[in-house]
Structures are given as structure tokens and as C-alpha cells.
Simulated assay, not measured.
Amino acid sequence: MRSSNKAFAALCAAAIGMVSVAAEAQPSAMVEDQPILLGEPYSVAGVLYRPADPAAYDEVGYAMPMEAGSKGELTANGEAFVADAITGAHKTLPLPSYVEVTALDSGRTILVRVNDRGPMRNDRLIGLSPGAVAQLGLSGPSAAVRVRRVNPPGQDQVALRSHERAAERLESPPALLKVLREKLQQTRLPAPVAQAPMTAAPARAGATFDRPQPRPVTTKPTAAAPASKEQAASGRYFIQVGAFSSRANAEALAKRIGAQVEQGGNLWRVRFGPYATRQAAQAGVRAAAAQGFANMPVMAKDGR
């Protein structure tokens, strides 16, 4: 009888262990596609953007990597920014929405869930999370792409909402890629200036891409005015665009957007500033918006 009790206890322990393992294997919480956020028209660095819900959207342009959400750790629709998730940022499409992104040099195509606003640069069409950049096989600061809005099957939507990858799409044939490259050249969008375009490994022999030459720059890009020594000594206002537990990640973002890194406790903060007055700090607000961090508040050092 005692032997039977021991066997029963062993079975119970095994069942509990299986439940624990299953619980640990559960994926992170799935995000929702409702409510859909469109938003009012907004202006960044003097450019007006009007969010819209087009039934058909199909454009070519340049993609850039996004290392954080437009609100630091959050995206524009309030979701946590997950670097490994296959997500994107767009200036006007509904949040969320789904798009197929095709690399114009290789023809490789993936499904991306758009859940953020940005990138706020006229020579960039879409921002891609590190996970999306990796799945598309890109490297570098920019790449020529096609972005087409789609209504994917439910299982693909669930996969992206669960921060997993959807099934990859068929590669675009060479004849279509040729048409899309010509369309990109005809749009006369300025190619990324002073940066080497992001490239993907060719999917087939002979897959090449003649990039449009950069157009002359006639105006200076918006940037934060550098603080003088006197301002740095007395400045107490700043614009914080992110806080990281990793110093390397903070320094990488700061280098990319021209900001500063400051340690506070166990966090490394990426900031524009310091500025002597709130009015002067508006230069930092404009600089952050130009990099895709919209509506960043002015903060005081003694209020952190």
C-alpha cells in the first residue's frame, strides 16, 4: 500500500513538473489589433503629416532600422517596443496595420506589423525593428524597399502579434524588381546622404541594383543647437528619448541621433541637452522629432 502511495506521489510530481515546464514555454503576451489608431494630422520639423487609412497602399522608398520605439520603450500606439518582433514604423498608415516589405536588391519579402510612427525623414519610407531587418537580410543604415499594405491570413496576424515571424512571402521575380527600381528612380526621392545604403545578400546570381545618386543638399537638416560651456554649466533642461539598462545600447542610439548619454542609477539615459531655459530646449524637441521621437517633453534635471 505504501508502495502505491509512493508511485502516486511520483506521478503527481511529474505532472506538476510538466505543467511548470509548459508554463515556462509559453510565449510572451500577445498584443491586440484593436483599437486601431489613426490620429490627427501632426507636424514635425515643419513638415505636416496626415494619417490616412487607404484601402490600397503600394510605395517604394528607403527603409531604416529602428532601435527603439518613438516614445523610447513604447511605440506610438502604446505597445512595448520588442526588438525581436517583426514590426515597423510609418508616418501615416493606421496603427496597427500589415505590410509586405520587399528588398529591391534581392527580391526577398516579409510580412511586417506596423505599430509605430516614424521615421521622420523625407528620404525614409519605413522604419524596421531589428527583428524585421534580420528577417529581411539587410545590413547598414538604409535599403531600397517596396512597402505594400496587405490583409494577411489570421495565422500570420497571430504570429506577428505574438512577436513571432509570419511565413515568408515568395520572392519578387526579376522582371517586377526591375519595374520597382525604375519606379524608385522616377519618384526622385533623395537617396540617403553621406551614408552607405543597406544591402542584402543577392538571392540569385546577377541580382544588382543601380542606386539613384544623392541629390545636392541645399538646406541644413534640423539639429539640436550645441550648448555653450556656460549653458552646459547652468543648463537644467533636457529632452530624454530613452533609458536603457545596457550602456552599449544607449551609446549606440545616442551616436545614431547625435544625443548624449548620462547615467542615473542603474539606467543609461539618452538625452538632448542640457539647455539653460525651456525655450532653448525646444531645439532638442525638434531634433528628437527629426529622428522619429515625436512629442518628447521638456524635462528638468531636478525632476528626474
Results as ranks from 00 to 15, higher is better:
84 D>K: 13
296 M>N: 01
132 A>W: 00
266 N>L: 08
30 M>I: 13
67 E>A: 15
244 F>T: 04
173 P>E: 12
113 R>L: 06
176 L>Q: 12
286 R>E: 13
277 T>I: 11
144 A>M: 02
172 S>R: 07
113 R>N: 06
115 N>Y: 02
226 P>L: 14
172 S>W: 01
47 V>W: 00
37 L>D: 08
260 Q>M: 11
80 A>C: 08
71 K>P: 00
204 R>V: 11
273 G>C: 06
203 A>P: 00
208 T>E: 10
51 P>E: 09
57 Y>F: 15
101 V>N: 00
290 A>Q: 02
286 R>I: 03
116 D>L: 05
50 R>K: 14
168 E>S: 15
16 I>V: 15
204 R>C: 10
90 H>L: 06
111 L>C: 05
58 D>V: 12
301 K>W: 03
254 A>V: 06
44 V>A: 12
20 S>I: 14
212 P>N: 08
220 K>R: 14
54 P>E: 09
172 S>N: 08
252 A>I: 11
211 R>P: 03
76 A>T: 06
117 R>M: 13
49 Y>G: 06
52 A>T: 15
116 D>H: 06
12 C>M: 14
294 A>V: 15
204 R>T: 09
270 V>G: 03
203 A>Y: 00
126 I>S: 05
106 S>Y: 01
196 A>L: 12
88 G>Q: 04
110 I>G: 02
154 G>A: 13
163 H>D: 11
37 L>Q: 10
163 H>T: 08
67 E>Q: 14
258 G>W: 03
240 Q>I: 08
80 A>K: 14
150 V>H: 04
105 D>C: 07
65 P>S: 09
52 A>S: 15
283 A>D: 14
115 N>M: 06
288 A>K: 06
206 G>A: 13
161 R>N: 14
7 A>C: 05
70 S>Q: 02
37 L>A: 11
270 V>W: 00
31 V>H: 01
188 R>W: 03
204 R>W: 07
267 L>P: 04
205 A>S: 11
218 T>H: 06
88 G>A: 13
219 T>E: 14
241 V>I: 15
297 P>M: 10
55 A>Y: 04
56 A>L: 10
135 Q>D: 15
201 A>P: 03
58 D>H: 11
81 F>C: 09
216 P>L: 12
235 G>D: 07
294 A>L: 15
117 R>E: 05
183 K>I: 04
